[in-house]
């Protein structure tokens, strides 16, 4: 056998892509979550692209600063303040999630649990806020087929996009709760890897990320 072939085989056996190794340096579980996120981003991307087409083709798209003015308990109109607060809450929950991952990698179960709890709390508040906002604009007369401010597609796309995002938040909360229970029962400690927490974390950050773009394109632009 040719000496070069032996050398090449040696090189292959040592390389990251030579088989028997994780070429990206991450386990398949984590990579699976990553590519799921890419796939999900395409769904949201398609929704937002469709929204963009409606937005530029319809005459008389309502001004969101005049629609989203409600804020509970203060009694004055505060355009966009409530949504900004929702964004703030979701970003904070993303922050506590990152801390939970960090704590779990240091094998600090109590701290990980505490931060997971805070994340779940943040997510739940976000959902409640969204319920309030939906309630409010439905109260103002918005439905899937019409709304008092302008073209019907405005409320239809609003309910569709925020609803689909809300479903993601909800499923994220369920996943987080399961993960927190597993942390509490020492599942990850027994397994010797807290990767599960990190994977759920990835999903949660993605939900936050989507909200950043929904907030920007739907509310601010």
């Amino acid at each position: 056998m040719n000496h070069d072939a032996v050398l090449e085989q040696k090189k292959i056996m040592e390389s990251e892509w030579g088989g028997g190794k994780a070429p990206f340096g991450v386990s398949w579980r984590k990579y699976m979550m990553w590519i799921f996120i890419v796939s999900d981003a395409f769904t949201f991307g398609a929704f937002l692209a469709a929204y963009g087409l409606f937005r530029v083709t319809s005459a008389g798209w309502p001004d969101t600063y005049e629609v989203f003015t409600a804020f509970p308990f203060i009694g004055v109109e505060a355009p966009m303040l409530f949504v900004a607060m929702m964004t703030f809450i979701l970003i904070c929950s993303s922050f506590t999630m990152a801390l939970a991952v960090s704590a779990s990698y240091k094998n600090d179960r109590t701290k990980a649990l505490k931060f997971l709890g805070l994340t779940i709390l943040g997510g739940s508040i976000f959902i409640l806020c969204q319920v309030y906002e939906w309630y409010h604009i439905i109260h103002d007369g918005a439905t899937m087929t019409s709304n008092p401010w302008g073209v019907p597609l405005f409320s239809a796309t609003f309910f569709m996009i925020t609803g689909f995002h809300g479903l993601h938040v909800l499923s994220g909360l369920i996943l987080l709760t399961i993960t927190a229970l597993k942390v509490k029962r020492g599942f990850y400690e027994r397994r010797g890897s807290y990767e599960g927490v990190e994977i759920v974390g990835l999903y949660w950050h993605f939900v936050d990320l989507v909200w950043v773009f929904v907030f920007t394109f739907f509310y601010l632009l």
């Binding site: 028997g20 386990s27 398949w28 990579y31 699976m32 796939s39």
Partner: peptide, 20 residues
Amino acid sequence: LFGSLNYIVTVLNLRTKGMT
């Protein structure tokens, strides 16, 4: 989607030794 997720990670991460 289930299928695709599986195929992609399997091909990337579960090749045997020497299977570039």
